[in-house]
Amino acid sequence: MKASIGIKENYLAEVAHSLGKILADEFVLYTKTRKAHWCVTGADFHSKHLFFEAQYGQLEEIVDTVAERIRSLGHFPPATLKEYLVLTHLTEQSREKNDSIGFIKELLADHESILIHLRENINGYAQAFRDAGTSDYITGLMETHEKMAWMLRAHLEQ
């Protein structure tokens, strides 16, 4: 059954596609954060292992809510690694060292990249697509990424 929520069908499709790209970014960042959790080494291993675990837990929740937002608009989210790698604007990174500072810098750059993308598109949901709900959702998502980026950035301050 089609969603009859006061948004034109073609707008719902465009918003769902846009959210699919965000979902791909979130899933790739989740995976990279999981990798940091699993692979971090060094004298600060234990604290960073726990820190990355908390971060990937937040990202896991984000992945689920983005996918559910797409479903609430009457569409199906991308749900394969192949689709995510095509849709994401993030890159997979192969690391030679597994130090916490390297992981933190990489993850921070990804959070900031996602933040810029969200900020650039937030008004379009409400204005171009008449979808204030998604615009509001993206605002909350942006705030979550701002806090997560701050937590990462704080580890780099001397």
Rank of each mutant, 00 (worst) to 15 (best):
E143R: 08
T33I: 08
L73E: 00
M151N: 03
N121S: 09
T41P: 00
M151S: 08
K48A: 05
T41V: 01
A128H: 08
F45S: 00
I116Y: 13
D136Q: 13
I101M: 08
E157L: 01
L152T: 01
E61F: 09
L115V: 14
L50W: 01
L152N: 04
A149M: 10
R34F: 07
V28M: 08
L156G: 10
L152D: 04
E96K: 04
H37F: 08
T33M: 14
G102A: 01
V63K: 10
A128L: 15
A132G: 06
H49C: 05
T65D: 14
E53C: 10
V15T: 09
K147E: 10
D110A: 14
G74C: 04
I62Y: 07
R34E: 09
I104F: 03
T31G: 07
S113L: 09
K21G: 06
F76L: 14
G74N: 05
A67Q: 12
G102F: 00
S135W: 03
N121E: 06
F27S: 09
R130F: 04
L59Q: 15
A16M: 05
D131P: 08
L152Y: 04
P77Y: 03
Q158N: 12
S47D: 13
V86W: 01
A3S: 12
A16W: 00
S72T: 02
M148L: 13
I138A: 02
A67T: 05
A79Q: 11
V40R: 02
A43H: 05
N123K: 10
H145Q: 03
H49N: 03
F45P: 00
L73D: 04
D131G: 08
A154Q: 13
K35F: 13
E112D: 06
G133W: 00
Y137A: 11
K32I: 02
H49Y: 10
D44N: 11
E92T: 10
H89N: 11
P77Q: 07
V15H: 03
W38C: 10
